[in-house]
Nucleic acid binder design. Structure first.
Lengths: 199, 199, 199, 199
DNA sequence: GATGAATGAGGATTCATTCAT
DNA sequence: AATGAATGAATCCTCATTCAT
C-alpha cells in the first residue's frame, strides 16, 4: 500500500519552491505524455531536482499525483463556491448557466491540464481528503438545486456534474476552445434535465 | 512502436478459441484489477495458455487491448444501428429515449466491463479502425438527428454521446443498477439539449 | 513484508540447474563479501543468469537467503541424525564426541560457508520451516541426552549447541583448520558441562 | 574506504553531549530495528540533532558504529579487569565463575544491547583499536589461566570467551533473564574444559 | 557550530518480449 | 503450434554524504 499523504512540510522557502516545481513538472508530464510517461525520474528531471529531493517531500509517486488531484478538486470547490455566490437570487436557468460556467473555470485556464487531471484521478486509490472535496462540491450544487424545488437534488447534482464533465471532456478532446459556446450547450442539457423532471 | 493489428488471422477453430480466451482473460483482469494489473503473464495464465501462445496471435499487449476496444466499439455500433431501426418513425422524444437505451445496451450486459473498456480506450494510441467505428457511430446519430431538423447535428451527436457516457460512468461508479431509470434521466437531458436548442 | 517461500517449482532440468546456480552464487558472494555485498545483480551475474530469471524462481532476495539457510539447517539435521545413530550404545563421553563431530560436519566441507550461513540466519525474519528444523535438531540432541539421565535435557541441548557454535565460529575466524582438535576441545567443554551438572 | 576514526575530538561539554546522544541513538536503533534500520537520518532524528551535526563529529556511519563497538569492548575490558582482581587468590573453579560473571556484566545491564553490539561488530571492518582491546581481553584471561598451570592458555582463553559468548547469545535469544543461572552453566562448561584438559 | 535541503549512485523488482526445445 | 525459461531495460525508491545558509 503506497503512502499517499505528503511526507514532510517544507519549512524553508527553497523547499516550498521545490515542492511546487515537482507538482508542476508532474502536471506537465501528465498532459504531454499521459500516465505511462509519468515516472519519478522524468518528474525530477523536469522539475530540475534530483530524485532524492523529490522523495523528501513525497513518499511515493502516487502521493504527488494525489496532491495534484487534491489541488485540482480544491480549486474546483472554490470555483463552485464563487459560482453559487453569483447565482444567488437569479432564476434557475441563469443559476445553472453560472454554475456550469464556474465548473469550467479550470478548463479555461488549462483545458488539457484539467482533463489530464480528471483522468488521472480515476487511476488513483481513493484519498479521503479528495473524496471529501468531491462530496462537498456535489453537496453545494445539491443545496442550490434544492433551493429551486428540484426533486432528489443529490441525484440531480451528480447527474449534472457528470453531464458537464462528459461534455467538457469530449469537447476538449475534439479541440474546442470556445468555452462560452460549450457552457451554453451544457447548460441547455442541464436545464432540460431539471425542467423536464418537473413535468 | 508497438504493432497493434493482430498478427495473424486465426483460421482454425482452436486458434479462434485461443484468441477469444485471451481477450476474455484480458477483459476480466481489466475489470478486477484495472490497467496496472493487466500484464501479459497474467493474461496468459488467466486464459490458460502460455505467453508464447499469446504472442502467436497478438504481436503485443497493446494489440490485445486494441482488439478488445475494437470489439466493444463494433458491438456498440451494432446496438446503435438496432436502436436507429427501432427509432424510425417515432417522434424525437421517443427516438432519443430509444437511442439512449441502445447506447446503454452494453452497460446492461456488463456495466463494469463496459466502463473498464471505455477507460482503457483513452490510454491507447489511436487505432484507425476503432476510430472509424467511433466516427460511424456519431454519424449514425447525427443522421437521425438531422431527420428531426436539429441544427448542427454532428455537434449535437457528439454532445449527446458525451453526455450519455459521462452520466453512465458516474452512475456505474456510484453503484446504480437500474438502467431504465438512468436511461430516463439521460434522455431528459438529451431532449432538453435538443429542444432548448430550437427556441 | 517480503515473500520468503520460493515462487515456482522448476519443472525442466534447465530450470532446476538455474535454481541451483542462483543459490550457489548467493552462497559464494555471502562468503566472500558478506551480507552487504549480497545484491540481486551480483547474484544474477555470478550465477550467469539475468536478474529476471532469478526472480522467476525466488520472489525476493530474502527468499534466496532463506532457502540457503533452510538447506544448511536440513543438512545439519541429517548430520545430527547420522551422529545419533553412530552414538547409539556408546557411553556419554563417546556419544558427545560423536555428536560434536557431527555438528561440525558442514564446517569440514566448507568452514567459511558454514559460518557465513549461520551469521546470515540471524538477519533473516523467522522462517517457519527453518525454525522447525532448528527445533528438531535441538530435540534430537535432547533425546539423546535424556537417554543418559541428564537433567533438563532441553536446556542442556541448547547450551551445548550454543557452545559448539560459539567455539566453532571463533576457531574459523582465527583460521583454524584442524577440526579434529577443535572437536576434541569442544567435547571437553560439553562433557564438563554435563558431568559437573550431575554433582 | 570510509573513515572510521572520529572526526574531531569534542572539547566542549555540549559537543560531548551530542556525541553521546548520537551513540545512544544508534545503539537504540540497532537494538530495536537491527542493522537494516540503522541509517544516518534515523540516528540524527533519534538523537535530536540534524544530519549535518552528526557529520561534524563522525566522518561516516561506520565510524559511529565503530565507536559504539569500541566503547563496548572497553567496558568489557574494564569488567574483565575487575573480575581478575576479584579472582586473585581464589581456586580455579571460583576464579572461572568470577570471570564468567564479569564477562556477562554488560549483559546484566542491557542484554539486548550487548547482543546487538556483538553482532554488529562482525559486520564491521577491523578497527585497530577495537582489535587491540579484544586482544588485551584475551591476554588478561590467558594470564589468569597461566597462573593455574593451564596448558596453551592463549587458546584456552579464546575458547572460553567463545563458549561464553555463544551460550550467552543463545540464552538471550531464548529470552532468559536469570544471569546467575546462566553464569553457573557456562562456568560448568568452562571448568570442564579446563580440568578435562589436564587429564 | 548547526541546520536541513539537495544529491545521485545503487539496489530491488517488474514485465513485455524472444527463442530454444 | 505450444511451451515456459530467459532476458534486460525500465522503474521505484533509499540513504550516505555534502554544502549553502
Amino acid at each position: 500500500m503506497a503512502e499517499i499523504s505528503p511526507r514532510k512540510q517544507p519549512r524553508q522557502a527553497r523547499a516550498r519552491a521545490t515542492c511546487e516545481a515537482v507538482k508542476q513538472a508532474a502536471a506537465r508530464i501528465l498532459v504531454t505524455g499521459g500516465p505511462p510517461a509519468l515516472n519519478t525520474n522524468a518528474i525530477a528531471e523536469t522539475a530540475g531536482v534530483s530524485v532524492g529531493t523529490l522523495y523528501q517531500y513525497y513518499p511515493s509517486k502516487q502521493a504527488i499525483l494525489a496532491e495534484l488531484v487534491r489541488d485540482m478538486r480544491a480549486g474546483m470547490l472554490a470555483d463552485i463556491e464563487r459560482g453559487r455566490a453569483q447565482a444567488k437570487g437569479h432564476d434557475l436557468r441563469t443559476a445553472v448557466r453560472l454554475m456550469v460556467g464556474a465548473s469550467l473555470h479550470h478548463h479555461r485556464r488549462d483545458a488539457l491540464g484539467a482533463e489530464a487531471m480528471e483522468r488521472a484521478e480515476a487511476e488513483l486509490p481513493m484519498d479521503a481528503e479528495t473524496d471529501a472535496l468531491k462530496r462537498r462540491i456535489i453537496a453545494l450544487v445539491a443545496e442550490l438545486l434544492a433551493g429551486y424545488g428540484i426533486a432528489d437534488p443529490e441525484l440531480a447534482a451528480r447527474d449534472l456534474s457528470a453531464m458537464t464533465r462528459g461534455m467538457a471532456q469530449a469537447a476538449v478532446a475534439a479541440g474546442e476552445t470556445d468555452f462560452d459556446a460549450l457552457t451554453e450547450r451544457i447548460a441547455r442539457g442541464a436545464i432540460g434535465y431539471l425542467e423536464t423532471g418537473c413535468n
